[in-house]
Amino acid sequence: MDDPERYHLTLTAAGRPVAHGWWPDETIARGKFLSWVGKYGAIPSAQFTLVDEIEALTLAVWPDQAQPASPPTPSAARPLHRLSERHRKQR
């Protein structure tokens, strides 16, 4: 059975959590990521992060810190990478 809290999506603004969501399916979670960015991306200092909690991987971040903020598109999500040791300790 899929873990219902495997994929965790977080919206923060001004460094504070605004909304969280959890899904058992990566495809659904990525769709929610794009949907949330489209709906709430205009919030000042909004940042969206999608994490695979089981694999300890950040799947997507918007806006990408390496690029200026842009409208959400599937290519706006960063490729998979391992969470830093510091981030794992915070969880």
Score class of each variant (00 low, 15 high):
M1A: 08
M1L: 03
M1G: 04
D2V: 06
D2P: 15
D3K: 12
P4D: 09
P4A: 06
E5I: 03
Y7A: 00
H8Q: 03
H8K: 04
T12D: 08
A13G: 03
A13F: 01
A14T: 08
A14P: 00
G15A: 05
R16C: 05
R16V: 00
P17Y: 10
V18N: 13
V18M: 15
A19P: 07
A19S: 13
H20I: 06
H20A: 08
H20G: 04
G21E: 14
W22Y: 10
P24M: 08
P24W: 12
P24G: 12
D25F: 00
D25G: 01
D25A: 00
E26R: 15
E26M: 13
E26Q: 15
E26W: 08
I28D: 02
A29N: 10
R30Y: 07
K32D: 07
F33P: 07
F33E: 04
F33R: 00
L34H: 14
L34K: 14
S35Y: 08
S35W: 01
W36A: 10
W36K: 10
G38R: 12
K39Q: 15
K39I: 04
Y40V: 08
I43F: 02
I43Q: 08
I43N: 03
P44F: 05
S45E: 09
S45G: 09
A46F: 13
A46M: 06
F48G: 09
F48N: 11
V51Y: 02
D52F: 02
D52G: 04
I54L: 01
I54K: 03
I54G: 01
E55Q: 11
A56H: 15
T58D: 12
L59S: 05
A60H: 14
V61G: 05
D64A: 09
D64W: 12
D64F: 04
D64N: 13
Q65K: 13
Q65M: 03
A66H: 13
Q67F: 15
P68S: 12
P68Y: 02
S70C: 07
S70F: 01
P72M: 00
P72C: 00
P72R: 00
T73N: 03
T73S: 14
T73A: 10
P74F: 05
A77H: 08
R78A: 14
L80S: 03
L80G: 06
H81L: 01
R82K: 00
S84E: 05
S84K: 05
R86I: 12
H87P: 04
R88D: 05
K89M: 00
K89W: 04
Q90D: 05
Q90L: 14
Q90W: 11
R91L: 11
R91K: 06
